[in-house]
Simulated assay, not measured.
Amino acid sequence: MKLFSRRPITELAFAPPDPRPGRDGVALALIVRNEERHIGEWAAFHRAAGVSHVYVYDNGCTDRTIAHLRDGLGGSLTVMPWDQKLFDAGTGREIHNQVLAYAHALRNFGGLYRWMACIDADEFLVPKRADSIAAALAHLGDVPSVTLPWHNFGRNGHVQPPKGGVLSNYTHRAADPISGARGVTNFKTIVDATRVTGLKVHSYQVDGRAVTWNDRGQAAANKARGSRDFYSADHLQLNHYYTRSETELAAKIARGSNQRVAAERHAARVRRNVANIEAEEVEDRCAIDFLRRVGASHSVAL
Rank of each mutant, 00 (worst) to 15 (best):
V51E: 10
N152S: 13
R285F: 04
I277D: 09
P21C: 05
L125A: 00
G50A: 03
V51G: 02
G157M: 06
K223D: 15
G157K: 11
D18W: 03
R23V: 01
N273C: 13
L238T: 09
A219N: 00
V196D: 12
D131E: 13
A233T: 10
A181Y: 05
A138V: 07
V191M: 04
E280P: 00
A117F: 10
F230N: 13
M80L: 12
R269N: 11
N273H: 15
K200Y: 10
N222M: 11
R155P: 01
R216S: 04
M116A: 00
E11W: 12
G154E: 03
G60Q: 11
T171F: 00
W213T: 01
A267I: 04
R293Y: 07
Q98M: 10
A13V: 00
N59E: 10
V56G: 14
W42D: 02
D18G: 10
D142T: 13
A138K: 05
Q160K: 14
N258Y: 12
T62M: 09
T189R: 09
F187A: 06
D71C: 02
R244E: 07
V274L: 13
A117K: 01
I9Y: 00
W82D: 11
F4K: 13
Q259S: 12
A220I: 03
Y204H: 14
G92Y: 03
V146M: 06
T147V: 07
D284K: 05
D215W: 06
R228I: 14
N152T: 02
T62V: 11
V166I: 15
A268L: 05
R129I: 03
N108C: 15
W213V: 00
R129V: 04
A138G: 06
L86C: 01
V26D: 01
H158L: 04
A121Y: 01
R47F: 08
H38C: 11
K85Q: 14
P144D: 07
